[in-house]
Write a protein that binds this DNA or RNA. Structure first.
Lengths: 157, 157
DNA sequence: AGTGAAAATGGTTGGCA
DNA sequence: TGCCAACCATTTTCACT
């Protein structure tokens, strides 16, 4: 993973791939007025430099029965419990994100699950059963106005 | 967008595409013991039924200078201002998510930006300038332990 | 639904500007 | 770095089960 400077074409490619991660190199080549191998070169470089970390599909969570989103603020009572906690977080697929935050609590988790019963199990049997959890505060989302992982990268002209 | 039941192969495909959104149909065909057209058929059906909503690239936010994440809780002082607020949220690329929540505040935003100066501008010039914002509370993320959009879909055996 | 083979499209490699 | 052209791989279509 080496340092890299990106040019305008790289930014255009990142913006385009954010919208359609399976777009053909040839389509981008036509759109940006270069050849397909040129696009492939840029993409390879973005991948090798660690700027592009992967590709994924976007799935309608409600349609697959995973429509409940909850945010859980967690305060740990001692730094000694941090490693176990982080290990737990990394291994649970229903924990979509975990941010170390500054302020009232230590960590903010976003949990994606099927139902309130499911959430209840995660909170009581998993999270509160971990060592060193001093306090949790759970906020349930009534609806998702917007929920994307896309970065604010604008396509240059 | 019609109702659809999914079988085991669909679940396998969704799990595989979550890990690699650009994987070749032929590779999935080999892995799951079916033909490439069979994979293509399933994927097309998942797309047409609205279960797959798109594909995207995963980008290292820090590497492109967008390493500051903040969570902003917002309380609106009157439902009349809701439409304007939601419209604002939809049109700002740096607002990655907005959930209508139950509890102390009305909405929880996740903001992705370049710096504290950038965040300051967003908060004071954009958000607090909107009509009907009664209260905001901002939490800055020190680090992201985990941050994925992947749904908890396990690959069946 | 799924298959297999043919036709079409797209990707990759290597020589060169 | 980028292009072109040829070669190779993949996707798509279609008749059939």
């Amino acid at each position: 993973m080496k340092l890299m400077s990106f040019d305008e074409l790289d930014v255009k490619i990142l913006a385009a791939l954010s919208q359609d991660g399976r777009v053909r190199w040839s389509a981008l080549a036509d759109r940006f007025g270069v050849s397909a191998p040129a696009i492939a070169d840029h993409v390879r470089r973005l991948e090798n430099s660690g700027i592009i970390t992967g590709y994924s599909v976007q799935i309608n969570a409600v349609a697959v029965g995973l429509g409940l989103i909850a945010f859980v603020s967690i305060t740990l009572d001692h730094p000694r419990h941090r490693a176990d906690f982080l290990n737990y977080v990394q291994h649970q697929a229903h924990i979509q994100s975990c941010h170390h935050v500054i302020g009232e609590s230590d960590y903010l988790l976003k949990i994606c699950c099927a139902s309130t019963a499911d959430l209840e199990r995660i909170l009581t049997e998993e999270i509160k059963a971990l060592p060193g959890i001093q306090q949790t505060r759970t906020t349930i989302a009534l609806s998702s106005v917007k929920d994307t992982a896309a970065l604010p990268i604008d396509e240059p002209n």
